[in-house]
């Protein structure tokens, strides 16, 4: 198992995602002899996981069953231990496309945070790219580096514990793309500029507040960035379900028995219930949904 390469079978040391049910998952690290408690009972790593195929159904000690899934950056995003506010897949998807990321890209990122975006970047730039990620919080940087190692992507990433606004990314003239998710991105724009390859590249800054966006745009404009554009992306999840709609009763019709018979045939399905009704499949938008996460500001660093 690796976050940048699929495997067929579960091995010791792998991180797997236990799928417990709708929107209920947990990540576990597979260790010979270890056990993990779930609400369906214990999972014994040696007998239930190691050597089994990813996607297998595993019966827990209390008789309930779970699926064991291969980790992906997207599953990791919804399962990772939060050390900070994290970026979610909807934003990550757009960041990846709009930064032109692909295998071989060299990317600078700050801050590392909980590593949600970092994993997605690493997946896309593997096997030949590199991620330089900067985190000013020592413990978070350390924890991230440890996770990258456990997820077998450490060879693709350099974690630096420094303040990007003061010390930059620790590399100059190498990046194809730069990503900023820090409280004052405008203070890091000059460092970002220096990090780019001579031929330029793409930059993205993520900020929750429009005031931050404005100051960032100003700094970007001042530093000669082009194609500055700010977007907000949301994903709506539609709930697919059956709804039952009652049919109105206008009383017996004058037309006689024939039309009444036809009508009764149409609602045959629901005829045995007290009210005639029709059931249809539909998808409803959620009553409440995760709204604003942040503004994504993209810009192009021209050659020079």
């Amino acid at each position: 198992m690796s976050f940048v390469e699929y495997s067929e079978f579960i091995q010791e040391g792998d991180v797997v995602i236990i799928f417990l049910g709708h929107d209920s998952m947990m990540p576990i690290k597979v260790e010979a002899g270890a056990q993990t408690q779930t609400r369906y009972g214990a999972i014994r790593h040696s007998s239930d996981l190691i050597g089994r195929r990813f996607g297998s159904k595993v019966t827990c000690s209390k008789g309930g069953w779970v699926y064991v899934l291969h980790p992906t950056p997207e599953l990791w995003t919804v399962n990772l231990p939060h050390r900070t506010q994290i970026l979610y897949t909807t934003d990550i998807a757009n960041i990846t496309l709009m930064l032109d990321l692909k295998p071989g890209s060299i990317v600078c990122e700050s801050g590392t945070g909980s590593g949600s975006l970092s994993h997605a970047i690493l997946r896309t730039i593997a096997p030949s790219g590199h991620l330089h990620t900067v985190e000013f919080h020592a413990q978070r940087a350390e924890k991230a580096a440890q996770e990258f190692k456990e997820h077998k992507v450490a060879h693709l990433v350099t974690v630096r514990n420094q303040d990007v606004c003061k010390e930059g990314f620790g590399v100059v003239g190498v990046a194809d793309a730069v990503f900023l998710d820090i409280p004052s991105p405008w203070e890091a724009v000059t460092h970002a500029k220096k990090a780019f390859k001579r031929k330029g590249g793409r930059l993205c800054s993520f900020s929750p507040c429009i005031e931050q966006v404005q100051r960032t745009c100003e700094a970007l404009l001042e530093q000669g960035f082009e194609e500055i554009c700010t977007v907000e992306v949301l994903q709506r999840v539609h709930d697919v379900r059956s709804v039952t709609l009652h049919l109105p009763d206008f009383g017996p019709e004058d037309g006689g028995a024939e039309s009444a018979k036809m009508a009764s045939e149409e609602v045959l399905l629901a005829a045995n219930s007290s009210h005639p009704s029709v059931t249809c499949r539909t998808a409803t938008a959620p009553r409440e949904m995760a709204g604003h996460t942040g503004y994504l500001t993209f810009a192009t660093k021209p050659r020079g």
Binding site: V213, Q214, I228, T230, E232, L234, Y295
Partner: peptide
Amino acid sequence: LTDSWLRHYQVICF
């Protein structure tokens, strides 16, 4: 089942 919603902002600078 999801859909994606996108909005562009025009940011005027300082």
